[in-house]
Design a protein around this nucleic acid. Structure first.
Lengths: 114, 114
DNA sequence: GGATCATATTCCAATAACGGAATATGTCAA
DNA sequence: TTGACATATTCCGTTATTGGAATATGATCC
C-alpha cells in the first residue's frame, strides 16, 4: 500500500522533485504548458500528468485561453506545509548544544521558545 | 518508477502521514520505540520501518540505552522544507484578489512579505 | 547458557506511482 | 470540413512503497 492512496494530499504531491520545480516556476507568473515543457525540459505528457496531480490537490490554478492552458501556483495551498514545518521552528535552538546557530538565524520572530 | 528512487530525500520521507506524526511526537523529547508504538497506535514493525526511513534521511537521531533505542527528531533536517515553502511566502498576498485573506492571517511573524 | 524483553529485518501480497509511446480531445485557421 | 497545434489521457512495463506476519538480532537478567 504505497503512500496514503497517493497524491491525495499536498505533502504527497510535493514529494516529487519535478512537481516542486513546476510549482516554483509557476509561482511568480502563470505559464502555458508548453512553456513548462521548454523551461524544465520535461516530456509534454509528463508535465500534463504532473499538472493533473497538482490540480487535483489544489496546488495550481488553471485558465484556458484558446488552445492553451495557463497554470499558476496557488501559493495559499502551500501554507499547510509551511505551517507543519513551522512546528519545529520553536525547537531550532534547543537541539544544537552549540550556541553559534543563534547567529545564522535570519530574523526568526514568532517569539515563544524558552 | 515511483518517486525519485524512494525516500532518499526529506520531502519523500515526510510525504507519509505517519512519519509526520512520528516527527512531531519526537520533536520535543526523545522517546523509545515502544513509546511511539503506544502513543501513535501503530504496529511495532511498522514503526521500526518508518524510523529507518527517517534515519536514512537524517530526520531523526538515535541513541541506544540498554535494549532500548531512543529516537529524537533532528529539527535541523526539516529546514529544507521550511525554506522551500518559504519561497512562496513572498507571494502570499499577491494572489487572492480578495483582500479579506488579510484577516485570516494569524500572526505570520517572519516579516518580509509585501 | 537460557529465557525474555526491545527493536530490527525479511518475506509476502497488494497497490500505485512514474516514464514513455501512442492516441485522444479540443481549439483555431483556412 | 480538414489540418495543424496544444494539451490531456490511456496503456504498458518497471519499480517502490506499505502493512502484516514471522523471524532475527541484541541486550539484560537469572
Amino acid at each position: 500500500m504505497p503512500r496514503s492512496t497517493a497524491a491525495a494530499d499536498v505533502f504527497n504531491a510535493v514529494a516529487e522533485p519535478r512537481r516542486r520545480d513546476i510549482l516554483v516556476y509557476l509561482a511568480s507568473q502563470e505559464r502555458a504548458v508548453g512553456d513548462i515543457v521548454a523551461a524544465l525540459e520535461l516530456a509534454q505528457p509528463s508535465v500534463s500528468k504532473h499538472l493533473k496531480v497538482l490540480r487535483d490537490v489544489g496546488l495550481v490554478h488553471v485558465r484556458r485561453d484558446g488552445r492553451q492552458m495557463f497554470y499558476r501556483t496557488n501559493v495559499e495551498a502551500i501554507r499547510p506545509i509551511q505551517e507543519w514545518a513551522g512546528i519545529f521552528e520553536r525547537f531550532w535552538g534547543h537541539q544544537l548544544s552549540r550556541v553559534k546557530e543563534r547567529a545564522e538565524r535570519p530574523s526568526s520572530g514568532k517569539g515563544g521558545n524558552a
